[in-house]
Structure formats: C-alpha cells, structure tokens
Computed example of a mutant assay.
Amino acid sequence: MSKFYLNTEELVQGEFVPKKVNIAFVFQVNCPGCFIYGIPIINNLYRLFQKDVGFIGVATAFEDFEFNNEANLKLLLNNGTLVGAVKKHYETNYGISAYSEKINFPAAFDKIVPSAEFLNSNKIELMCAAIPNFSNFSDTEKEILVKKVKSHYSQVPLVGETFTMNQLQGTPSFIIFDESYNILGFHFGHISEDILQRRLMDFLG
C-alpha cells in the first residue's frame, strides 16, 4: 500500500492530528477550480466529519509561484483575498474580489524547496521506488528512469514536496489516508461531494 508523503511548513490555520481516517485537500491559491469545487466540498465535509476524520488543507505550487505562495494563503485565510486567475474569475463573473466562503479546515503551505536542493536529496530515488513494479526493473532501467526524472525537475525553479513526492496530477486533489499514512483513496479534479462522503463513511466503518 502506498504511503502519503506530507511535508509542509508550519500550520497556518488550525491543528492536524492524524486519526483512523484522514483527508488531505491539495490545492493552489491560483486555481479557480479549487475554489469553485474543492473548497466548498471540503468545508462541508469538515462540518460533517471533523469529530471522526482528520482534515488538512495543503496549499501547494507547481506553477505561477508569484501567486501560489504562503503569503497569499495567509491573506486568503485571514480576509478572503483572491489573486491571479481566481480573482479575475470572481470579478468577471460575480463582480467580487474577495472569497465569501470562510475556510474552516486546518491548512498549511507545502514545503517549497529550490530544485537544486530537491535533486541533491534522495527524494527522486524515493519517488521512483514508489512506482508499481519498480523493484522488478533491471538496474539499467532503474538508472534510466531516475535520470529522466532528475532531468525533468532540473528544468523547474521550485518544487513543492508534498505535491511532487505523491506524484499528484494537479489541483484540486483529495487524498484519503489512515493514521499510518497509508493511502486509502485518491481523487483528482472535480468530484461529487457524495462520493467523498460515502468513501469516508466506508473507511470509518
């Protein structure tokens, strides 16, 4: 069973204590879909399940670093300040420049490191080792794959560790995991709240 890798800066809001069942909501401050679909869903799930489920929102960055940063996360949490494409969406469609829905769940910013630092650690090897059947690859195949991954990340200025180490496809992403950080379920993109509710209830038993 795959492990959920969680490495963030200090919590910006609330407290996260792992429980039998937990859900991480990975989003970007400059991601309209995260605000339109993701945050309302997690807010409501938090209202319904906070006594039994651990919640952690992880604001990350894999692009638009001038908008996707911890300073803008704090502004969002404190007074609903919107930035970039999200601000444009709400101004254009609703004539507002602040997010009206208060974010209630605990939230932190992803650990962001320079790509050189990331490449000089052992994290690339750990990522590759988590790939299904990687252990069955020949030594040459393993070496080629590691080199390809390192080449890719050498082209980016910064790396969000939670986003990258879990090889997420984008935002919003929803990861359900247990108290030992074993991943129980994963969803990317627009998903029905009913589906997530049922999955949480199933894992709670």
Rank of each mutant, 00 (worst) to 15 (best):
I103Q: 01
T171G: 05
E143Y: 07
S151E: 15
G160K: 04
L184N: 05
V146Q: 09
E141P: 00
S151Y: 07
A108L: 05
V146P: 00
F137E: 09
A107E: 00
I176G: 01
L82G: 01
E91F: 02
A116T: 09
K111E: 12
E161K: 04
Y90K: 02
L82S: 02
G80P: 03
F163T: 04
F186R: 13
E101P: 00
F177G: 04
F137W: 13
S151Q: 15
S154Q: 14
Q169K: 14
K123W: 05
F109C: 11
E117V: 04
F109H: 11
H152L: 12
E101Q: 13
H187I: 01
F174M: 07
D178I: 01
K111P: 00
H152D: 14
V146E: 11
T164S: 06
N120C: 05
S121T: 13
I103H: 03
T162N: 10
K148T: 09
N122T: 13
A85I: 06
S138V: 09
H187M: 10
G160P: 05
F134A: 09
V113E: 11
T92V: 08
S135M: 12
I175R: 02
N120F: 02
A98R: 15
H187P: 00
N120E: 15
N93W: 04
N120S: 15
I131P: 00
D139M: 12
F105R: 07
L184R: 07
Y90G: 01
T140G: 07
L119P: 02
T164C: 05
E101Y: 03
I144A: 08
P132E: 12
T140E: 15
A85T: 12
P114M: 10
F118R: 04
K142L: 08
Q169C: 05
E141R: 09
N133S: 12
N133K: 15
Y181P: 01
V159Y: 03
V83F: 04
S135T: 11
G170E: 12
E161R: 03
K142D: 10
P157M: 13
Q155T: 14
S97E: 14
Y99W: 09
F105Q: 10
N166I: 06
F163Q: 05
V149P: 02
F118H: 08
F174Y: 15
L184I: 00
P114L: 11
F109M: 12
A108H: 02
C128I: 04
K147D: 14
E179P: 00
I131W: 02
N93T: 04
K142M: 08
L158N: 12
V86H: 01
A98K: 15
A85P: 00
I144K: 14
V86S: 02
I176D: 03
Y153I: 11
I144Y: 12
T140Q: 15
E161N: 07
A107W: 00
G95D: 13
P172N: 08
A85H: 10
S97Y: 07
H152T: 10
Y181L: 04
H152S: 12
E117A: 08
S173F: 03
Q155I: 03
I183S: 01
G84K: 06
K147R: 13
L119G: 07
E125A: 11
G84D: 11
A130M: 12
N133F: 13
N182F: 05
M127E: 05
Q155K: 14
T164N: 05
I183E: 10
